[in-house]
Design a protein around this nucleic acid. Structure first.
Lengths: 154, 154
DNA sequence: TATTGTTATACTCTATAACTATA
DNA sequence: TATAGTTATAGAGTATAACAATA
């Protein structure tokens, strides 16, 4: 008996294709070599949502707890993050971003935005408008995924 | 004397922020663990644009030539790509995607699209429409970046 | 006993340097 | 002599397993 696999919608397929290519675009926007994607994503989460536990950060990035322990150690070593204790549970470590970490994210984002701005300027006004108009919707979409990530186990 | 650094536009900054979060979203759409981002991106390039030289692939992914040599070796080992010679220049290796590689990309894309479709369905219709309407524009944008990537050296 | 986090060890991936083959 | 690619070695980053501390 053949199993019937669900088929994704054409819209979702197109969107995935574009997003895959946009990932490559974003990666290419910086010479980088500075920080891994996972490290930067973790730092951004600390910047947006405040301090988190090691296990929460690990789940959000889909890496194991030991991997996140070492990633946080590297972030701490470079002055981008800092460990703190929890008043309620002595086992827990709360990781937060430092001013240095925020500065790093800001500079990185600005460098990318400058490069991306140049690309946007070469697009026809209509296309550029479509992209700008979709930013809030994509922000909403990105926010949805966060919930999903957090509930993931491994 | 203070140097005046160029300031990115608010639009570009917002777009970069969203794109950074979308990268995390796309990464989280699959359990993955199967293939690195660079490997998948390389395979997609071979799928879209046909055979390429090792050095071209290395430049497009912003990795060194030796790294791409080994990446291609892994892709070949797993049956996703194959090496071929150039008729014009005996030094050159032309790397192409195999049917197995195309199947892999298709399955991977479908799995992501299914998951992404679920997320899209939870969005208000207006927001979903904005996203869908912007797909062609983003495709254009992603196409622009390719040119840039290719001209990069290291 | 279960949970939170760290340490130990092995593997994957990438960079730099040295090398081979062709132009 | 320059170019295309490979091989050798080292380092970063992650996973699994074993461990220590707290609940």
């Amino acid at each position: 008996m053949a199993t019937i696999s669900p088929t994704p919608s054409a819209e979702a397929l197109d969107l995935v294709s574009v997003l895959e290519r946009l990932v490559a675009l974003v990666r290419g926007l910086l010479p980088d070599g500075e920080m891994s994607l996972t490290a930067a994503s973790t730092l951004r989460m600390l910047d947006r949502d405040g301090p988190h536990r090691i296990s929460e950060l690990a789940a959000s990035q889909s890496v194991t707890q030991p991997a996140m322990t070492q990633l946080v150690t590297r972030l701490e070593r470079d002055g981008h993050a800092e460990r703190g204790g929890s008043a309620e549970d002595a086992r827990v470590v709360l990781v937060g971003i430092t001013p240095t970490g925020r500065d790093y994210l800001r500079r990185r984002r600005e460098a990318r935005a400058l490069r991306l701005g140049e690309l946007l300027d070469t697009l026809p006004a209509t296309e550029r408008a479509r992209i700008v108009a979709a930013i809030p919707a994509f922000t909403l979409l990105a926010g949805l995924s966060q919930v999903t990530d957090g509930s993931r186990t491994r």
